[in-house]
Amino acid sequence: MDDLDKLIGYGGIKMKIELRHFSKTLKKRSVLTDVSYTFNDGAIYGLYGINGSGKTMLLRAMAGLIHATNGEVLVNDKILHKDIDFSPETGILIENMSLLPQYSAFENLKILGKIQHVANDADIENTLKAVGLEANIHEPVVKDFSLGMRQKLNIAQAVFEDQKIILLDEPTNGLDTDSVSKCIKLLRKLRDEGKLIVVATHVAEDMKKLADVQLHIVEGKIESTERVSVG
């Protein structure tokens, strides 16, 4: 991929998520307060903060899974919940994500893939290999997976359909050191393909290794942003 491709984004479609004065109140408690920021493709954004700081909620807002109390989220200039229901071409990893326990990793992705019909069997297998599930593609079934294997599969479901926007909440949870390295390698590769990647984590080490732009979230606000140079 050349520089021009990087500039205009993967496949010639530029991806952008824009938060405009986004606020969210849950049970009279403000979880996000007047957040304004624009995420562009071709970079990995890291949302970093302690538990309860609002980084997960921010990620969910970007996916269209929660509604704003005030403000709005725009995906490629379309307002979520007004112009569109959900952010299109988005892969998402959320906490406690449930895949179908009675099926294998391959079958799970195959079933999900039937909705959009953009990934073939080879795409599914390649993704599962990329996340480190090469030995567990067809067996065992998901209910017999370890925590780390489930997390790898969750990452795989977020990226296997060539999504242009990838939102990951604590992707390294439950992963061993080697798997974390594999995960980082995969995300960097996707970034280099021009995708917009946002990762929420409370692990400072992962953040340093992964994010091109670090956003420090404190009490529902973006406290600071820092552009860093990573591999």
């Binding site: 996916a63 899974l65 569109i84 229901d85 959900f86 952010s87 299109p88 988005t90 892969g91 998402i92 959320i94 406690n96 994500m97 449930s98 895949l99 179908l100 999900l112 909705i115 959009q116 479901q157 359909e161």
Partner: peptide
């Protein structure tokens, strides 16, 4: 219910 989120994202429309 839990699996639904994955579907919603892919269907794009509720």
């Amino acid at each position: 219910s839990d699996w639904l989120i994955l579907q919603l994202i892919r269907y794009k429309k509720i």
